[in-house]
Structure formats: structure tokens, C-alpha cells
Design a protein around this nucleic acid. Structure first.
Lengths: 240, 240
DNA sequence: GTCGTAAATGAACACGGTTCTTTTACTGCG
DNA sequence: CGCAGTAAAAGAACCGTGTTCATTTACGAC
């Protein structure tokens, strides 16, 4: 994070392109680092969409040849895994120390989803990655699992509760890349129940200004957490 | 579905490769069709994994040049959309006519997930596709929406209930492509709550022989449906 | 100082989807 | 019946992707 903008004396150094051509051989001062590469990848994903973060594009952005990246990253897939960890690090877990379990769990889920929502282009790329084996995410799971067990969740069910909730979060994040009116049946007459339900919802959302994907997320989240609570031990820190 | 195996007189016609070379120009009898292409794509996905269903591979399997495929499908993305519709068609909805809403919804969700689980290689490819705009899926939504409203679900919430459940289903399907022991913290001592919960679950699962991803799905599914029911009108066809 | 290693360049390679031209067959129209 | 227009195949390219490999240069340790 220190050598981010290194362009010593180059009359024509536009910010985002073509530094002075470096001569062959190991450079005097480090140009690349794994962190710099993944952060640039995330930034390009944000700025240019899913197709904008290829190896060549990242290399060009850093004023470097594509092959140089391979000294720091194993390949494109590993790079994406790095980006995912970057996002994972930004999911806070403080709420479990401050709120009752159900409010904390809901807050955590919303922030988890937001971490992806803030970078729409990444969702389709990252959602399909199996999460890194011994990543820092395990620390997050520990906090959540502890809170669940204290709330009366059977210990042998806590992990499944977390995995289920995470699946819902990721599935909901995928909805974010679809058009908002994707399900609109239009004037079709052969699906009356669905059409009526769709219009009723559209009206309610128009009043509140809420996005449909956000509404579905909230509906599902509340149902899931309520359902979890119903299966916990009756008198353990319930909304303490 | 009639011209599926067309190999007239070719001494060396192994089932899966190199038919007699066709001469240039429009063939006498149709060789390709959109349906045949998408079905072949799905089959190759099953047989060879996610990388095995490129345009060249499908063309080769059908004894045809890659460019010929473009007379029937717009491109690779459209082909995948076709495969997804193929799977969507296989999700039944009969249960809503026969079972109480909650049992029917659970059954539907399980079969929805199974439709993907039967073709693991497709999951990562299809989960990220926005579902086709006016596809046959809308008919399925109509059935589900009708059942929900009859069960006392507020009409303006039915669509969000469906979308939320679908998000959970797709998110859970994505878990299927990850290793079963992905979350195993191993001997790590810094995550005691998670380690204990993980081991407790592993023991329970070992006894019943259930897979961990299936357990998480069931836990989440039951919680979600229970939570939905709690928000419905008190006396509408409850487990009738 | 010298030797091994890290980190860059630059030139390929292989493979993916796609497009374009050419050739042949089929179909509808007068 | 003959002719035009179109559909559907081959075949040859194009371009962009991730990736590898040899080469060159600098740094660090003995």
C-alpha cells in the first residue's frame, strides 16, 4: 500500500495509463505486490464491470507486462479468491457483542450482503467460488457460532444455521445483478394469481420506494431468523 | 428428437466422435436443431464438467463445424440459458394441489434444488444467469403464488416470499460444488466455539449418514417456511 | 566478490467464442 | 417448370483470453 503510485519522471503520465516503459530486468524498487494486484482487480471490477479485470487489463493499469503478475499471483482464479477475501474482511461482527442474537444476526446478514452489493460486478464472479479453506472468515464464523449457542441453539446445529443463512445471503446477492422488473408478467392472462400478487407488491413498493430485491431479502431474512429462534432452547438470552 | 443419431454408413463410427465428413452446403436432411444442441450441451456438462461444453466440443460431439451451431443458437450464453430452461421444465408443481401449503412448499423447494443437484457442473454456470424473461417458469410461479395466497399470505408479499425462497435454493445449490469438509477448522485453537460446533455436527451427521450440505439446506428450509407461516393470516387453510 | 534467487520484460502458445464467405439444398411464387 | 430467396451446412479466418518460457537485471547472503 505504499508503492501505489510510482511514476518518477515521466512528462506524459496520465493517471490511468502507460507509465514510462521500464527496461528489462528486476526493477530497483518493488513495483508489484499481491495486495496491490488484488486491490487493483477489485477497483477495475467496480469501474469497468466483470469483463474489465482480466490479467492484461490489470497489468496495463499497473504499467506492467501481464507475465509480471504471475510472480505474485498464481493465476486469474487465485486473484479472484483474493478479491473475495478482500470483501470478506469488510464484514463486521461487532454487533454480536452489543445486540440480542436475533437482531445481531439480522444486522450481520445485511452487512454481509452489502459487502457484495457495493461491488455488483463481483457477485457473479465470486459467488461461485468455493470459499478459501483456512481464510480469515473462520474467525467470523466463530463469533457467530458462539452467539448462536449462547442464544440456545443446539450446538450440533449452529454450523448448519450459519451455512443456511450464508446460502440465502449469497443467493440474494445474485438477485442484485438481475433487472428489477425481471419477473414482471406483463399483460399475460394465463397467470392470474401471479399477476395479481406482482401488481400488489409493485404498488406497495412504489409507496415506500423500496427496491424489490431488498424487499425479498428482508422478507426472507426475517422469516429465517424467526424460524431459527423457534427451534432454540426456550430460555436462553432471548432478546436479552 | 428424431435425428439424434444419424450416422448412415461409416465403417468407423464410434458413438461419440468423428462421423463421416459431410460435404459443404446445406445437407439433405436436417442435422441440427436448437433442442438437440442444448440437450447435447447439458449431456456434455454432465459427462465432462463445466469446461466440457464449449461450442467446439458440442460441435464435435454432433459431428459438425462450430459455425453451424450459430444457425440455431445466438451464442454460448444463449445456449446456457436454454440449458437452464431445460432444467426448469423438470421442476414439478403437482404437490400444491395435494399437500398443505407448508409441506408443498418444502417439497417444491427440495425438487427445485434437486434439479440442479442432478447436474453439478451446471450450477456455477446457471446460477449466475438472470432467469429468462418470459420463460415457462412464470407458470410455476403462478401455481406457487396461488397456493401462498390461499394459505393466508398477504397478496403483496407472495412474490417476495417466492423470490426469497428461490434465492435460498440457488445459494444452497452453489454449496453443492464445494468440498464437504470445506469449513473444517482442523486443530485450530483460536476458534473454540466454531470448532466445538463443527465437531458436534460432524458427529451427528456421521450417525445418520446425511451430507452436511443437505443438513444445512433442511435446517434453513424448515426455518424459512416456519417463519413464513408465522406471518400469514391466522386461519387460512393451515395444514388442512 | 560471487552465487542463487526474486522480479521484471517480451515473445510466444493454445484455446475460447465468434464472424464471414462460400457452397449446397430446400421452398414458395409466377 | 423454372427461378429467386432463404436456410443450413463447411471452412477459414479473427480476436481476445489466460498462461508459459526464456532472458535480463537487481538484490541479499555467505
Amino acid at each position: 500500500m505504499r508503492e501505489e503510485r510510482r511514476v518518477p519522471k515521466d512528462p506524459e503520465s496520465r493517471p490511468t495509463a502507460a507509465r514510462a516503459r521500464r527496461r528489462v530486468g528486476r526493477p530497483t524498487s518493488r513495483v508489484l505486490s499481491r495486495r496491490l494486484i488484488t486491490e487493483t482487480g477489485l477497483r477495475l471490477l467496480d469501474e469497468r464491470g466483470a469483463e474489465g479485470a482480466g490479467m492484461r487489463a490489470i497489468a496495463k493499469e499497473l504499467g506492467v507486462q501481464p507475465s509480471a503478475l504471475y510472480n505474485h499471483v498464481g493465476g486469474h482464479a487465485e486473484l479472484l479468491a483474493g478479491v473475495r477475501e478482500l470483501l470478506g474482511e469488510r464484514i463486521p461482527v461487532d454487533m454480536f457483542a452489543e445486540l440480542p442474537w436475533d437482531a445481531a444476526l439480522a444486522d450481520w446478514a445485511r452487512r454481509y450482503r452489502s459487502a457484495f452489493a457495493a461491488h455488483p460486478a463481483t457477485i457473479a464472479l465470486l459467488a461461485v467460488l468455493p470459499l478459501a479453506e483456512d481464510s480469515a472468515l473462520t474467525g467470523m464464523y466463530d463469533t457467530v457460532a458462539g452467539a448462536l449457542v449462547r442464544a440456545g441453539c443446539p450446538e450440533d446445529r449452529a454450523v448448519s444455521v450459519i451455512v443456511a443463512l450464508e446460502s440465502f445471503i449469497l443467493g440474494s446477492a445474485l438477485d442484485l445483478i438481475a433487472a428489477d422488473d425481471m419477473l414482471d408478467p406483463g399483460p399475460r392472462a394465463d397467470v392470474p394469481a401471479f399477476s395479481a400478487a406482482y401488481r400488489a407488491r409493485a404498488e406497495r413498493l412504489a409507496e415506500t420506494g423500496r427496491r424489490s430485491v431488498d424487499d425479498a431479502f428482508e422478507v426472507g431474512l426475517r422469516a429465517m431468523i424467526a424460524g431459527f429462534g423457534a427451534g432454540f432452547a426456550p430460555d436462553a438470552g432471548r432478546s436479552a
